Simulated scan of single mutants.
Amino acid sequence: MCLGLPMTILETDGVSALCSFAGEERRVSVLLLSNPPVGAKVLVYIDNAVRLLDDEEARLIGEALRGLQAAVNGENCDDFFADLIGREPELPEHLR
């Protein structure tokens, strides 16, 4: 399974960018994007930035990943998924 990471661009030359997430830095390709600026949040799959993220979407993806890590470690992950507690799951509109 491949998970996309919400990374922040620290520096870029227009072809690749040094990005960070959760204390990890890596160089990724930004060729699929149109010159993303330093500070932009991007969704990264297999060292390729595939799209820009707004701050809220990047935060939500980051929280979900931290929640998954907590669950894998046997820790309480309810705080990471507070929007799902106490309600029935809902399909996105396009899948209904």
Rank of each mutant, 00 (worst) to 15 (best):
M1Q: 08
C2P: 11
G4L: 08
L5V: 07
P6S: 06
P6Y: 00
M7A: 14
M7T: 02
T8V: 12
T8Y: 01
I9H: 05
I9E: 07
I9Q: 09
L10P: 03
L10V: 10
E11K: 15
T12P: 01
D13I: 04
G14I: 06
V15F: 06
A17L: 04
S20H: 12
F21D: 03
A22W: 04
A22G: 07
G23L: 08
E24R: 12
E24D: 10
E25F: 06
R26W: 02
R26K: 15
R27V: 14
V28N: 00
S29R: 01
S29Q: 04
S29V: 01
V30H: 03
V30K: 01
L31E: 13
S34H: 05
S34G: 07
P36A: 04
P36Y: 05
P37E: 04
V38M: 03
V38G: 00
V38F: 00
V38D: 00
G39T: 08
A40Y: 03
A40Q: 04
A40F: 03
A40G: 04
K41D: 10
K41H: 14
V42M: 00
V42K: 00
V42A: 00
V42N: 00
L43R: 01
L43C: 02
V44Q: 02
V44C: 04
V44M: 02
Y45Q: 06
I46E: 03
I46N: 05
D47L: 07
N48W: 01
N48S: 06
V50M: 10
R51E: 11
R51Q: 12
R51P: 00
L52E: 09
L53R: 03
E57T: 14
E57N: 05
E57C: 06
A58S: 11
R59W: 07
L60G: 00
G62P: 09
G62C: 04
E63I: 01
A64E: 14
A64I: 10
L65N: 03
L65K: 02
G67V: 11
L68Y: 14
Q69D: 15
Q69T: 13
Q69M: 13
A71D: 06
A71P: 04
V72S: 14
V72I: 15
N73D: 15
G74F: 07
E75R: 15
E75N: 13
E75T: 09
N76P: 11
C77D: 13
D78F: 10
D79H: 13
D79M: 13
A82F: 10
D83Q: 14
L84N: 12
L84C: 14
R87F: 04
R87N: 09
E88G: 04
P89F: 08
E90V: 11
P92C: 07
E93H: 11
H94S: 11
H94L: 08
